[in-house]
């Protein structure tokens, strides 16, 4: 099938079997390797991207489901060579060790901040509950999301 959808606000048109995963379309066809495959079955959250602003698993989304959709990947958060406020906050708060979960973590956080500019810790932990990190213990990650939320609010003033 030929599927047309938007990736980071750019229209893409791909020829693909209908049962091919969004994860593979992004990584193999579009060379957007920020999205990671961890478990491949919707448990770990490493492949999280945004679909029309909502977090989804790229490993559980098929080409047949994508027509007309807007997908945001980590590459779409900032211009090449720059860091988005969330990315910067994760770096500043040392919320990254191996980094494999980070892009999914940041996109889940992004989806939260799109709806809730001033989340408390419970909201942050719930929003990140589908993203598993084996390194950090989550404390720095929660701090990074709080910091990004604060900086985004300050930037909006």
């Amino acid at each position: 099938m030929i599927v047309s959808f938007y990736v980071n606000d750019r229209l893409v048109q791909l020829e693909t079997p209908p049962e091919r995963r969004l994860l593979d379309l992004l990584r193999e066809d579009l060379h957007l390797t920020g999205v990671k495959e961890g478990c491949g079955e919707g448990e770990c959250g490493a492949c999280t991207v945004l679909l029309n602003g909502e977090p989804i698993h790229a490993c559980l989304t098929l080409a047949i489901q994508l027509e007309g959709c807007h997908i945001t990947t980590i590459e779409g958060l900032s211009a090449p060579g720059e860091l988005d406020i969330l990315q910067n906050a994760f770096a500043e708060e040392l919320a990254i060790q191996c980094g494999f979960c980070t892009t999914g973590m940041i996109l889940s956080a992004k989806a939260l901040l799109l709806k809730q500019p001033d989340p408390d810790e419970t909201m942050i932990r719930e929003a990140l509950s589908g993203n598993i990190c084996r390194c950090s213990g989550y404390v720095q990650i929660v701090k990074a999301v709080k910091r990004a939320a604060r900086e985004l609010r300050e930037a909006a003033v």
Binding site: G42, P55, H57, A111, N131
Partner: peptide, 9 residues
């Protein structure tokens, strides 16, 4: 149900 990612779809 599941996680936010699951509930979105």
């Amino acid at each position: 149900v599941g996680s936010p990612q699951i509930r979105s779809k």
